[in-house]
Each structure stands twice: as C-alpha cells, then as structure tokens.
C-alpha cells in the first residue's frame, strides 16, 4: 500500500479505537452472564457479581448438563435447527429466484409479492394458527417446528434484492449455453450470492435455535421440547401473582447461577458456528 496521508492515518486509528470500544461494550453483558453462571449462590443472590465470578464453582453447569431432559432437548434443537435451516434456505432461494425476475418475464409477479408481504404483516392469531397445525396432524412431531416457519418473507425479499443485483448477462449467457432455470440458480446465482446466503442462513439458524413458543404449544411430551422452550420457562421471570401456587416457582428465583448457565449454554453453539460463517462472508 502506498504511503498514507496523515488524515488517513488518524482516521484509521480513531476508527479502530471506536470499533474496538463498541465491540467491547457488546461483549460486556455476555461476560457478566458468564461470571454469574460461575458464581456461588450467595454472591448471585446478593447481586455482588459484576464481571468476575465470586465464589467460583461449576455447580450450575453440572446441574444443567446432568439432566436427561436437557440433553434430549439439546438434540431436538439441533435437529430442528439444521433441518429447518436447510429446508428454509432451499425454499427461500427458489422463491427469491422467481421473484427476482422481471414483470414481463414472470407475469403476476407483483401479485405474488404483495401476497407475501401481506402475510408478513398480518397474522391469523394464535388460536387459528394452532388449529391449522393441529388439524394437519403436525403436533407432537418435529415437523411442527419446521414447516410452519419454513418460509420467512423477510428473507425472501432480502435475497430477491441480492439476486437482482447480479448482472443479467451472466444469466443470459448460460441460458444460451442451454442451462435451465435450476442450473442457473445453483451454479451461478448460488456461488455469487454466497455471502448473503450465508448471512441469511445464520439468521435462520439463530431464529430456529431461539424459538421457544412453538415448542411450547405444539409439543406435549418432555422429550420433544426444544432447548429454548425449557430455557424460556426459567429465564422469563417470575409471575409474582402466583406465588404459593407452585412451590417450584420459588426455586427459580433462587437459582440465578443456574439461569445464567443455561442462558450461556443456549448461546454457546451459535458462538461456535459463527466463525465459520464469518469466513464465508469475507
């Protein structure tokens, strides 16, 4: 690189500092959660823990990982995340590809677009949605966690825009060579849009991993709950109006370390997966 001017240098330094500061601020709460999860009961109850564990112990993690329910739920979550993401990305790509074509080429495209956007904004409400899933016989099966959420219009719109940015000449050239739509999609569009596909895949995976409500309403047996459903019940705080109704509710209050540990465990897989995506994004 050629020599940098002074203003460039200053900018670079300030920029780096600023970015580093922001990144640091972003990581602080995670550090706090981790510290709480590794601290003793007393320290957490008295809200003494800031960024470093007090009374270091691994009890919370031991308790969390030791239970059958946890491991099964973990597996369910992994299954739905991987399966759901694959299915979603496949369907999204198909939809985005079609939608990215021009109006003249694909008649009625705008109609479909409005249709999709409409569904993004208007929901049937909890009970009709539940009824649809139930009557389709999907309850108590993992498909209830994958199918109803398989197509996310937000993602379709984003990917559609990415696809539109691809030069038409590429497509036309390969079609002259005799490629059909599927070929074009998978051999040309896919590689070029890899950064955006990777991004959307990541978002989808995060969505699946953190989805807890669908697990709660569609599943009836403990071995079918995704991890997030269990965690939500613990983390979501305490309904004071019901004290005395269920003694185990009080237990929840007293187990901040356990809550934090569970939260951290819930996030950990995402943290692991993220660097791989970051590679693709570059």
């Amino acid at each position: 690189m050629l020599k940098l001017s002074l203003s460039d240098r200053v900018f670079r330094i300030v920029n780096h500092l600023f970015l580093a500061l922001m990144a640091f601020l972003c990581i602080l709460p995670m550090v706090h959660v981790l510290a709480v999860s590794l601290s003793s009961d007393y320290a957490t109850t008295s809200y003494l823990v800031k960024f470093w564990p007090i009374g270091f112990n691994l009890d919370a993690y031991k308790t969390a990982l030791d239970s059958n329910n946890f491991i099964v739920a973990f597996k369910v979550s992994v299954l739905r995340t991987l399966g759901g993401t694959l299915l979603t990305m496949f369907l999204t790509m198909l939809a985005a590809y079609s939608m990215s074509k021009d109006d003249r080429y694909f008649k009625g495209r705008t109609l479909y677009a409005w249709f999709f956007v409409f569904t993004m904004l208007f929901h049937g409400g909890l009970i009709p949605t539940y009824l649809v899933v139930q009557k389709s016989g999907l309850t108590n099966s993992i498909w209830a966690l994958i199918l109803p959420v398989a197509v996310n219009v937000f993602n379709v719109v984003l990917m559609m825009n990415f696809f539109r940015g691809i030069p038409k000449e590429l497509e036309e050239a390969s079609m002259i060579d005799g490629a059909g739509h599927f070929r074009v999609l998978f051999t040309i569009f896919f590689p070029i849009s890899l950064p955006s596909i990777a991004t959307l895949s990541l978002f989808t995976m995060v969505f699946h991993w953190n989805s807890w409500f669908d697990g709660m309403i569609y599943m009836n047996q403990a071995d079918q709950f995704p991890l997030a459903t269990f965690l939500q019940a613990l983390i979501a705080g305490f309904d004071y109006t019901k004290i005395g109704l269920n003694p185990s509710d009080l237990e929840q209050l007293s187990e901040r370390s356990l809550k934090s540990a569970l939260m951290f465990i819930g996030i950990f897989p995402i943290l692991l997966v993220y660097p791989f995506f970051a590679k693709v994004l570059r």
Binding site: L131, M216, I217, A222
Partner: peptide, 23 residues
C-alpha cells in the same frame, strides 16, 4: 401425564388452546 409443560404460563396457554381447539 397427558400434558408436559415447562411453566405455569405454558400451562395456561395450553389449556386455552385446548379449549379453543376442542382437544
């Protein structure tokens, strides 16, 4: 145990859904 739920709020939602859907 016909229903396994994760907390009281989930239980209440389950009951309401069952009433609405005829389960």
């Amino acid at each position: 145990f016909q229903w396994v739920v994760t907390d009281t709020a989930a239980f209440e939602t389950k009951v309401r859904l069952a009433l609405a859907s005829g389960e």
